[in-house]
């Protein structure tokens, strides 16, 4: 990937509650967060268009999770190896990766199934990323498995006694899978606690089934309490609250080595996926709410927003035009990387 400079915004902590913005974060942080939220939204809307004009078979993604996802990506300690954070993300994670510096070409190559798709070689659905250089574990379709796998990276980090933590994201319905329980049990063993930020993005839906039909607990994060874990619920539609609370919780985990269960309320702005039409749904839109706030506080003008949006739209369209011309995967590539180092797995060649 053309790795862009990480969009890290440093030094926010000392300025919380004041700053020149009149809000709880400094102005330049707010502007950066907005920029990335908008960029990520434009990317998702471009992907939906690509699906709708028939240049992709399927879309699933994360419009509506930007207010949570962008702060998470900004605060993650990006890099390779256990001294950096490990991220086990679900398929609504595009905004986190945009905040970490993902360009437009990478997600479009993936959704358009090109041979140049560096995450899966044209094999998998949209937003199923894997970036070894950033400790971004492969996004999987089977719901929930990331909560089990995260135990292992956290264990390696704990052993290394560094500052790297393991971050895992997933949906509310998926917390019914045994993997979620495994992560609570394994992260909280007395004296062997794991440095894990176990998060749940609660959009109140699992495809068509409402939260109330699937849960007895008030908050999924409450399930950490009997394990003596720190738990919290945040408004994931508010990027300021998300940024501040994520920063606090991550600092706690880095300092104590102990896990946190964090639930954030988010929206599912275009429904579950292209299978349900990928049309706009009337739910809280974190981006437009944030824009309203920034306009009111004179941090941005209508023109700033318009210019930014059209710039990103142009960039996304240009990326689509480029990707369209790129090679499709060859049939023979089905055997590629069957085993490590391309040792053959085709028995006809044994």
């Amino acid at each position: 990937m053309a790795v862009q400079a990480q969009s890290k915004v440093r030094g926010s902590k000392s300025k919380t509650k004041s700053g020149s913005s009149g809000l709880a974060l400094p102005k330049q942080v707010l502007i950066k967060i907005h920029d990335l939220m908008l960029k990520s939204r434009v990317l998702e809307e471009r992907m939906i268009k690509i699906y709708k004009v028939g240049e992709a078979y399927f879309w699933i993604g994360g419009p509506g999770e930007e207010a949570f996802g962008v702060p998470l990506g900004l605060l993650a300690n990006k890099g390779k190896g256990v001294q950096h954070d490990w991220l086990h993300l679900h398929y609504r994670c595009s905004s986190t990766l945009v905040a970490m510096g993902m360009d437009f070409l990478t997600p479009l190559r993936l959704i358009m199934n090109k041979a140049t798709d560096e995450c899966t070689g044209g094999r998998n659905f949209s937003n199923h990323y894997s970036f070894p250089e950033w400790n971004v574990a492969p996004v999987t379709s089977p719901i929930g498995v990331q909560y089990s796998i995260a135990i292992g990276t956290a264990r390696a980090q704990q052993r290394s006694k560094g500052k790297g933590i393991t971050i895992v994201t997933g949906g509310d319905a998926g917390s019914a899978e045994g993997d979620f329980a495994s992560s609570l049990i394994w992260a909280s063993r007395r004296g062997s606690e794991l440095p894990m930020l176990i998060t749940v993005q609660n959009n109140k839906w699992g495809i068509s089934t409402h939260f109330d039909e699937q849960h007895g607990e008030n908050h999924v994060s409450d399930r950490g309490q009997p394990f003596n874990m720190r738990t919290t619920v945040i408004n994931g539609n508010d990027p300021i609250e998300s940024y501040i609370r994520l920063e606090e919780e991550m600092a706690y985990i880095r300092k104590t080595g102990k896990p946190v269960v964090l639930e954030s309320t988010v929206s599912r702005l275009f429904g579950h996926s292209s299978a349900s039409g990928a049309n706009p749904i009337d739910e809280i839109d974190c981006l437009s709410d944030f824009q309203t706030l920034l306009l009111k506080k004179d941090i941005l003008t209508e023109k700033n927003i318009k210019d930014l949006q059209s710039g990103y739209e142009k960039e996304a369209k240009a990326a689509q035009d480029q990707v369209r011309t790129e090679m499709t995967p060859q049939a023979s590539s089905i055997w590629d990387n069957y085993f490590v180092g391309n040792e053959t797995g085709n028995w006809r060649e044994f």
């Binding site: 998998n124 060859q330 069957y338 797995g345 085709n346």
Partner: peptide, 15 residues
């Protein structure tokens, strides 16, 4: 084919 999965692109699925 004895593969770990079926790739999405038509070229892959059909092979």
């Amino acid at each position: 084919k004895n593969l770990p999965g079926i790739g999405l692109h038509a070229n892959l699925e059909e092979a």
